[in-house]
Each structure stands twice: as structure tokens, then as C-alpha cells.
Computed example of a mutant assay.
Amino acid sequence: MLSTRSGVRALGASDLSAFLELTALDPVVNVFADYRARTTNLEPRWLGGEMWGRFEGGQLVAACHVGANLVPVQAGPDDARAFAERALGRGRTVSTIVGPHAAVEALWEGVAGGWDQPREARWRQPHLEIAGPPQVEPDPRVRRTTRQDMAELYPACVAMYTEEVGISPEHGGGAELYRARVTQLMNRGWSFAAFEGDRLVFKAEVACASPHAAQIQGVWVPPDQRGQGLAAHGMAAVAQVVRAEVAPVVSLYVNEWNEAARRAYARVGFEETARFSTVMF
């Protein structure tokens, strides 16, 4: 149903073409939403939630992914307020609000009075892109992972997630689902790692991809191996393979305070193109 006050309704398969035109306005920043639309056809049963659209004069002008994450798409202040109004009407069902800073800030301001306080808010996360060859030598040890690597890979993924998010992905009985996600990325050829002997010394994954871009997540080096350039040379290898085989532009976003990671990405050739924010519950 379309709200006459906000012009917001849930999108469906018939809206796919218009939605992809919307994400194409900034295809790298919108890669997550683009990927979700292409892989689910905007069908709620496959989305595991909904994709809301806001219309003006019958034209789709903004959207918002509503699943485990609330993700605004091309949302200006009025769009974000409209999405926040709809979100308040259903209560909080998401674990994060994430996306471009201004839209996330406006969304949070709109729902803050009715939702519980976030566990953490990271307001200015540099969004980085690389669209050319890496500027450092790729680590030749980096390769796609296989099921034979799971004994090393899965604990590394848990350690990375716990360090990054502040809570284990296995918390509350989530181990089976998280292991399935790690396996899913592996099966897609989206999981990469470097090994020294049998020990994993670097890892990263492609979180999502479209014909325009791929977004990297889960970059991690064991604490006792940091400061040796493993992240820079590992990311150079990942970016090189992903640009050749998955999508022409590689992106990621990083915490503003993580200066070591930011230096590593800058060495590779990643450049800041936007600022993201993440509000975590």
C-alpha cells in the first residue's frame, strides 16, 4: 500500500527496472542494494524483508532496504524522514542502519525517539574505491579458499567479526548460520586468503557485487602478524583478481579510527569517494 503522506510503498518484481536505474545513479556506493535486487528480483520471500521505494510524480526517487540491515539508497533528507516514519510504524527489526552518512544520520534522527539506543554508532567511515592496477606488488600467496581451509579460515572469520563488531557472530546460537555464510562466500569464489605454511596470515571476502562494482569485507591479519605489510599486499592481490574476474571497481568502507587499515588501503591505491555511517543495535 502507498502512503499518500510519504509516497512510500514496498517494491516488487515489477519495480526492478526502475530500481536498477536508481542504483545506477551511484553504482559503487549502491552496490549492496543493486546486488540484493538482482539476486532476489525484489521478491520479499528472497529478500528476507522488504525494499521500500519513495515516489514523486509516479517516479521512484529513493529506496531503502529493510532486512537484517536498514540501507538507504539515493535518499535525501525528505526521503530519509519518510522511511523513518514507516520504520517507526513497524518497530525495530534490523540490527544495523548503514549507508551514506547524511542519509543514515537523518534516518536515525527519525527513529531515535521510538527505537532503543544503539550499541554503537560509527558516524564517519571512509568509503574507498580502486578502479585501476594496485600500486603495490600483490601477495602471490593469496588465493581463493576451499573447504580444506575451513579449519584455519572459520576461526579467522570469527576473530575478525568479533574484533570489528564487538560481539561474536556465534553469540546467541549463531554459529551454524555464520559458518553457512562463510561457506557460501567460499562456494561463490568470493573468499580469499594467504597462508604461511598451514597458517592463515591474511583474509578478505567479497561481500556483494554487481556488474559495476564489488564490495570487500572481512579484511583481517592475525594480531601478531600486523605491521609487516600483509594487508596492503594481500588487498592488492584481492583487488587485482576481483577487478579482472568479478567487477571493474572494488570498494570497501573502513572505520575512521583504524589508521593502520587506512594507510594500507591508501598504499594499494584506494581513494576515498564518500563517507558511510553505521548504527549498530
Rank of each mutant, 00 (worst) to 15 (best):
L128M: 14
A112C: 11
H101P: 00
G132T: 08
E137C: 03
A151Q: 09
L153H: 10
G110S: 10
A103N: 07
R144L: 13
E109K: 14
V136Y: 03
V98L: 12
L128W: 07
E109V: 04
V98E: 10
L153G: 08
R124V: 11
R147K: 01
Y154V: 15
I97R: 01
D139W: 13
P126I: 09
P133H: 01
L128P: 06
P140S: 11
E152M: 13
R119T: 07
P118H: 07
L107P: 04
H127Y: 14
A106C: 15
M150C: 03
V104F: 06
A102N: 09
E109C: 05
P118F: 05
R122D: 10
D149G: 06
P118Q: 09
A112N: 06
T145A: 11
G132K: 04
R144A: 08
W108Q: 11
P118R: 02
R124T: 15
Q125F: 00
T145S: 10
V111W: 10
V104S: 05
L107E: 04
Q125L: 11
Q125H: 12
W108S: 05
M150D: 13
E120G: 04
T146P: 05
A121T: 12
W115F: 14
Q148E: 15
W115S: 04
H127M: 15
P100S: 08
W123F: 14
H101N: 01
G110K: 03
V111N: 09
V111P: 05
I130Y: 07
T145H: 01
W108F: 11
P138C: 08
G132A: 13
P126V: 08
A131Y: 00
P133D: 12
D139I: 09
W115A: 08
R122S: 14
L128H: 01
V136E: 06
R141V: 02
M150F: 13
P126Q: 12
M150E: 14
P118D: 06
A106K: 12
D116I: 01
D139P: 12
L153S: 05
R122F: 14
P140T: 09
G113T: 13
A106V: 04
P134C: 12
I130M: 07
R119N: 01
R119D: 04
A106S: 15
P133T: 06
A131Q: 07
Q135G: 04
R124I: 02
M150H: 07
R141D: 15
E120W: 03
R147Q: 01
Q125N: 15
E109T: 10
T145M: 12
Q148N: 06
R122V: 10
W123Y: 06
A103Y: 03
R122L: 15
E120Y: 01
